[in-house]
Amino acid sequence: MSALERLAKMDRRVMYWAMLLLIALPYAVPLGLPMQISTYSTEFKTTIDALAPGDVVLVSMDIGLGSVSELGGGIIALAKQLSAQGVKVVAVSTVAEGSLVFDQYFRPVLTSAGYGYGVDYVNLGYAAGDETMIASIAENMREVYSRDYAGNDAASLPLLQAADDYSAYRLVVTFDAGTATGFYARQWQAKYGTPVLSVPTAVNFSYFYPLYQAGSVEAILNGPRGCAEYEQLIGAPGLANQGIDALSMGQLVVIAFIVLGNVAFVGERLRRRKQ
């Protein structure tokens, strides 16, 4: 078997080891690669800047724990900006693990900024039904959530009493690994005009780009890169910036093996034509 044939039939594990080691490198030795800020991120930050103290926003945690490695930096950055501006937060989720993500990443920033539970922020947790649920809470929040995530009755949460339907919310921010952005665009923005901001995983950025272009989505961040730019815009580089360098290494490995795959393929075809 010629060298090229062996290259073409390379064992998968060689690629997987190369991927893991090169991605781990920036975490061991910080690379600090430079980055240009895109207009999407600047527009996202200025939209949040416009919020006044006392305004209420709906934060929809529609990502599982698996997506935190991508959007964790963005979650923490949004919590920092909202708490710095005294904006009140009501959190919901269309994903079973979403309420855990809120508790582990969003809540600590709020509590360290002195936010009181039930008055300044509420975590209502997960409710099944996807688009059904999102359509229902716009009309009547307490019909779907008679209790919050921790089991406290709705009556004991003053913030939930005040913010019972769409009219109480200045805007919606969804951290989205699925189609929640589409649900909110249809059931909140199209129906009631409430601006929808989306922080999709990079996967979903192109998926929702037509909605952003058509005006159904107000502002959008481009996955982990958008979160890293947003971190720099609010002057708090953290989880996302560290992840971006590791991400660059990962994508370089993919491109390298695509090139290798083609070298093997083209080389083999030339060799066979010569025989």
């Binding site: 991927m19 893991l20 991605i23 781990a24 975490y27 698996g66 997506s67 935190v68 490695s69 991508e70 995983t201 990079a202 996967v203 996955g223 982990p224 890169r225 560290q242 992840g243 590791a246 991400l247 990962g250 994508q251 993919v254």
Partner: peptide, 13 residues
Amino acid sequence: AMTRITYITGRAQ
């Protein structure tokens, strides 16, 4: 690919 590779970066970290 950018999203999917972040699933590895979390583990590598």
